[in-house]
Design a protein around this nucleic acid. Structure first.
Lengths: 341, 341
DNA sequence: TTGTATGCGTTATCAA
DNA sequence: TTGATAACGCATACAA
């Protein structure tokens, strides 16, 4: 069925070894032999078998990217960049979607695909420390965003607390006094939410503002709808907030939507700040102030770190220390929370 | 390094063949042998090699999904669903991103990965008829959205013209008389744009309205920014439109944004309708009327059709006729173009 | 029911 | 420079 190097060799009157050399541009092959091989390849329509190459070399040329939901813009942007960077480095990307399901996360980390891929970039919603510690599969994993906080695995992210502080501080400096936070999660071990909440708290404390627990809203998931629901509950308060910091842009956009529905003006009645730097926030009405992480850098560093691990494993060199890289972020001020003037 | 079935066999005191049988739950294996094998697998931490299995069986268990940009919401939603459906069918998904680049599209179709994957689901922006006709790789391809119009390959999509007609007709029925179209493309062979433009035209003609070429705006790409730019040019007209039908939701959302920036009220001054049924349009201000295709069905049919082809190829049965499936769509009326009352 | 032997298409070792 | 030849890990035809 498929044309093999053997077939090409016969046709070109050389050994299969020579064909392999030509294909991989490896050893020095005589000009005449090379030419005959190339011609034979063309005539026969030979196409290399990745399966065989992978088996032989032990390298599949595939990285695994694991995200909760591909259509959540933050993950979509991440996927875009990871796929691009991986391609630049000669790798294809196998995408797994966990839907926040723990079994799927486990399978992505432990299943056969985890071995087939040379490494995995994991962006999890659930705490994954336990999944990583007793891992059977030996292929390297780099964690994005959520950190285990245990320093047991390479991690790329941003300083969530500092960023949340910057966002909240901006609201306070622009004159807001009752600043709400949308985005705590029932599962307290969700570090992302915990860290951002901490930054929010720090900013309030530093400004000498009191912490009103009714202004801290828990959500079930991180979709627009959850932000809208949370906003409703805030607007229903006897003394509603004059500002909202949402843990993600999607929550903020949901909040924006609900405020408009209820006739509450943004930013006049309530200012809103999000987190993620989504493209969508540049076009919302009003445009959304946000914390914009350098996502390109997150993707680049993730892939690079992973490839470093893979290479180190091959050369069985000394294990590099666990990376814990914080990528820079910007506070981008837009219409939803203008600076006072 | 890696534990093989051979190792397990030695440990369990059986032949490698028996281990293989146990792993695949295939033939009837004696209870005691099975137990010993399972125990040995546990002790040694045996993990099957997908590379070897793939080489031997000729089936990689991988499908390839090719899209222009993973972070364009329409493709992100598509990817989400395709990955989910594929997983249900026991397949992993290798994602390729073409960025609209023809060379990347070609590589996705012709490169080694095209052979490694058992089949490809392609959502292209460029016309791909030529890429598909003289194809070297023999793995099946299913086309999504854009059709070659030649009936030479399985295609899943919606009736673009009928949908565009419905959208435009809705605007006309709600009393609009100067309806603009955003989304023609310099590359006239981009069928999606052509078909939607045709539906727009048909609706105007049927309503006895004149076609004003100045109301048909060409764009460079399909991002929010392009929609905003197009909207600007429309609003700059001496006699601007009272309604806009955009070929995609992203364009419509950009248009919405620009209208708001310019102080033009939607829907009072100008109504806006999009196309794609994005989640984002449920939360925009105002919410966006749109053509909502059954994306879940698109994904499901794509994967099913592809798997059918793969199976047919294996059993070398009679080739099924080329599928050209149109998935249903809904016109979802929201705030950007309310029905008159 | 289980074992033996072979080959999937490559790469790579060893000679020549 | 090139040719035999041996793995890579697994699935399966054929035997037992």
């Amino acid at each position: 069925m498929a044309v093999t190097q053997q077939d090409v060799a016969r046709r070109a009157g050389v050994s299969q070894r020579t064909v392999s050399n030509v294909v991989n541009g490896l050893a020095t092959v005589g000009d005449d032999a090379r030419e005959r091989v190339i011609e034979a390849i063309r005539q026969l329509g030979y196409r290399p078998s990745l399966a065989a190459r992978g088996l032989r070399s032990g390298r599949s040329g595939v990285l695994q990217l694991v995200v909760p939901e591909l259509d959540v813009p933050y993950f979509a942007e991440l996927a875009r960049r990871v796929v691009s960077v991986a391609e630049d480095r000669g790798y294809a990307v196998l995408v797994r979607q966990t839907l926040g399901d723990r079994d799927r996360e486990r399978d992505a980390l432990e299943g056969a695909a985890a071995d087939y891929a040379e490494g995995t970039i994991l962006s999890a919603v659930n705490p994954v420390a336990d999944l990583l510690t007793g891992r059977e599969s030996s292929s390297p994993v780099v964690l994005i965003g959520e950190s285990t906080g245990l320093g047991l695995i390479d991690h790329i992210g941003i300083d969530d607390t500092a960023a949340a502080f910057a966002a909240t501080d901006h609201l306070i400096r622009s004159g807001r006094r009752r600043v709400a936070f949308i985005g705590t999660h029932p599962d307290a071990s969700l570090r992302m939410a915990t860290l951002r909440l901490a930054g929010y708290r720090d900013a309030l404390v530093e400004a000498g503002l009191s912490l009103d627990p009714r202004l801290i809203v828990q959500i079930g998931s991180y979709h627009r709808e959850d932000g809208a629901t949370a906003m409703s509950s805030l607007l229903d308060l006897a003394d509603p907030p004059d500002a909202v910091f949402a843990a993600t842009d999607l929550l903020a956009l949901g909040a924006l939507h609900r405020a408009h529905e209820r006739g509450v003006r943004v930013p006049q009645d309530v200012a809103v700040v999000g987190f993620d730097g989504l493209e969508e926030g540049r076009y919302s009405v009003p445009t959304l102030t946000t914390i914009e992480p350098d996502t390109g850098e997150v993707a680049r560093l993730s892939v690079e770190t992973l490839l470093d691990r893979i290479r180190a494993r091959e050369s069985s060199g000394p294990a590099a220390p666990v990376a814990d890289l914080a990528v820079p972020f910007d506070l981008v001020i837009r219409g939803s929370s203008p600076d006072p003037d």
